[in-house]
């Protein structure tokens, strides 16, 4: 697959020797949906702004579609839709008027304007508010106008900086669905510090921390790499100390924690390998004659992986 974004040894220093991004390299293939993850201040927005041609790199090379963002800025910007973090809009314009204006600035030719604007409004659910002033819209609608703006000229690449920030849960779901729809025909780079966000929409994640890339891998690989040992949750009708002792005697068990809920003992088991131990645990419970009400393999959440990565010394 051809490469859409190619970033090599990107460094960005702000005046006062603040290093926002340091020696960052990654690439995004055409058609991929990549999540840009990191705590606040990790350098995500700076990297995206450089990609969008708003800031210049201090060092390194950034290419979009094989074109350098500094030397061929104009060409790059034609093929790219960008939603800044703060989603700035002209509040004195009406929604459709604003999108027409943005199409005129970015689009190929005026002949396609009506179709382009209507498609963007339809996709973002803006048809009902198209004649309202942007300044009178709620945060959720403004965010959608920002996304509609990013895709109004049908670019190959979408760069969305925290597209769901400040939205209510329903709106978040709508935006996620929209992003999934867009993923069919666009390459998308989304930043977020909300992990479920990335988990829900992206196939690959790039983790940034303190201006550096910590990880760049598919989602499922990520959790494997940052966790060793599978985890099981077991609930049986028995006394906690007895359950703890029994499970400790199993092979490969690394740790066991048990707490009592009425007459049920709830145990969390961690094993030394990634293998599936559910069968062994079931046989053990059966052997003791306990009643089993839950046996669940815990999937490592991205949250945990993220906390592990960014609180350890990996970033500094």
């Amino acid at each position: 697959m051809p490469t859409m974004i190619e970033v090599q040894h990107l460094t960005k220093k702000y005046p006062g020797s603040v290093v926002a991004v340091e020696d960052v390299s990654f690439s995004v293939a055409s058609g991929e949906v990549v999540g840009f993850l990191g705590p606040n201040g990790a350098g995500k927005s700076t990297t995206m702004r450089i990609l969008a041609g708003y800031l210049s790199p201090t060092g390194g090379e950034v290419k979009v579609n094989g074109l350098d963002v500094v030397r061929n800025g104009l060409e790059v910007r034609k093929r790219l839709g960008y939603l800044p973090e703060t989603c700035p809009l002209y509040t004195d314009m009406r929604v459709s008027e604003y999108l027409r204006y943005r199409f005129d600035l970015k689009g190929p030719s005026r002949r396609h304007r009506r179709a382009g604007v209507e498609r963007a409004m339809e996709r973002c659910g803006l048809a009902d508010v198209q004649n309202r002033l942007i300044g009178q819209l709620s945060k959720g609608f403004r965010q959608r106008v920002g996304i509609a703006d990013a895709l109004v000229h049908n670019p190959d690449l979408l760069i969305l900086d925290e597209p769901t920030i400040g939205l209510d849960p329903n709106q978040i779901v709508q935006i996620r669905n929209l992003i999934r729809e867009l993923a069919v025909s666009h390459t998308i780079l989304i930043s977020s510090h909300i992990l479920s966000e990335i988990e829900a929409t992206c196939s690959r994640v790039i983790v940034m921390h303190k201006g550096k890339v910590l990880e760049s891998s598919p989602l499922n690989e990520l959790s494997h790499r940052w966790f060793s040992g599978s985890q099981l949750r077991v609930e049986v009708k028995a006394d906690a100390p007895e359950v703890e002792e029994t499970f400790r005697s199993l092979d490969d068990v690394k740790s066991v924690t048990v707490h009592q809920e009425d007459e049920w003992a709830c145990a969390e088991l961690t094993f030394v390998t990634d293998a599936d131990y559910r069968e062994e645990v079931f046989l053990c419970v059966q052997g003791r004659g306990w009643i089993l009400r839950e046996l669940m393999a815990k999937r490592h959440s991205l949250e945990e992986a993220f906390v592990n990565m960014t609180t350890g010394d990996a970033g500094s």
Binding site: G53, Y54, P84, P88, L89, T91, L105, D149
Partner: peptide, 14 residues
Amino acid sequence: RSGTLEMLLTAPVR
């Protein structure tokens, strides 16, 4: 001040 300059300068205009 309002940040719209970012929208303006990331559009393909000189």
